[in-house]
């Protein structure tokens, strides 16, 4: 009897400890990153670090500007491809597709989310990079801003990174916004249709409007996924630390910077600290975005539940 109760007590305590530990982990990582990046924050001003564009660790120059821009550009590019495609797919699946089709397509999309990033990277190198190399001179001649090809493009570029990332965030945005569309009460559709609206008018004016906060949350979650994605992007984006002027130029996003360099040349003063600062910035931005998206989704869930 005693042993049984003791085990019960122990099991309870142990599980609480594990639960607390895993939820504290995020804070532990943030604190450790901050602590390790303190030396560079003390040696340089934050604005020099964030806005400086020279990256010469040997000479003690750590300007993150090209990396921050590289991350932003590749993420924004990915979202430009992914958002319209995913939202339209989600609308089709939720509003038009027959149940049979929906049941077959959704698991496939979820499967897409489970493919390891390195596989996407290989796919990018083999398929997307040559494609970009091929189209760069053609489109580059048109002289559209951001689409010029000043010099020869190897294909390892912002555009390749954007396309690969877009494919990776599709499943997140599709499956969340599909859920959001399904959660729109059928009364909203009834109201619009009974006034003589067509199906598309109903979706455009009533359904999307109701689903808007949820779609925003889906996009933000996709954004934070793209923002921190490392492996696939690193393989196709070219990794040149300069500010890209065209989508055909190579870029160097922050996750790639950390992954490529951490552990090497650690004897350079402040180098380790600089890389960990990059990690800290990355983590804080993603945390912020994810938190915002979760809050929106929770609010929607509540408002739907309470009618």
């Amino acid at each position: 009897m005693r042993v049984r109760q003791l085990k019960d007590l122990l099991a309870g305590r142990l599980m609480i400890a594990f639960a607390i530990f895993s939820s504290l982990l995020v804070f532990l990582i943030a604190i450790a990153l901050y602590w390790r990046s303190k030396p560079i924050l003390e040696a340089k001003s934050l604005s020099d670090l964030l806005l400086g564009s020279t990256w010469l660790p040997f000479q003690g120059e750590f300007g993150f500007y090209p990396f921050i821009l590289g991350t932003l550009y590749v993420t924004i590019l990915a979202m430009i491809f992914a958002v319209p495609l995913s939202i339209l797919s989600a609308i089709y699946l939720a509003e038009y597709a027959h149940e049979n089709l929906r049941e077959k397509v959704l698991p496939l999309i979820d499967l897409l989310a489970g493919i390891p990033p390195v596989v996407y990277g290989v796919f990018g190198v083999l398929a997307i990079v040559p494609l970009v190399e091929y189209i760069a001179p053609v489109i580059g001649k048109l002289g559209i801003p951001f689409l010029r090809a000043e010099s020869y493009s190897t294909g390892f570029s912002l555009l390749a990174g954007g396309i690969v990332l877009a494919i990776m965030v599709f499943p997140i945005i599709i499956s969340i916004s599909h859920e959001v569309f399904r959660a729109v009460p059928s009364e909203i559709r009834d109201a619009s249709l009974s006034l003589g609206a067509t199906k598309w008018q109903t979706i455009k004016h009533a359904v999307i409007r109701t689903a808007l906060p949820g779609i925003a949350a889906a996009i933000i979650l996709g954004f934070s996924r793209a923002f921190g994605e490392t492996m696939a992007v690193l393989m196709v984006v070219g990794n040149v630390p300069s500010v890209p002027k065209s989508v055909f130029d190579p870029a160097y996003p922050m996750p790639a910077l950390i992954a490529n360099n951490y552990g090497e040349m650690m004897s350079i003063p402040l180098y380790d600290s600089a890389l960990l600062l990059a990690a800290l910035i990355l983590m804080l931005v993603i945390l912020l975005f994810t938190l915002a998206a979760r809050l929106v989704l929770i609010r929607i869930e509540r408002s739907m539940a309470h009618g």
Partner: peptide, 26 residues
Amino acid sequence: VRRRMGLLPQKPNPLPMSIYDNVTYG
């Protein structure tokens, strides 16, 4: 046909917009 038949539902189903926009929606 639907335009010619107004529907008053079991539970009020205002569209997620202003009072004005609800009436002018149709």
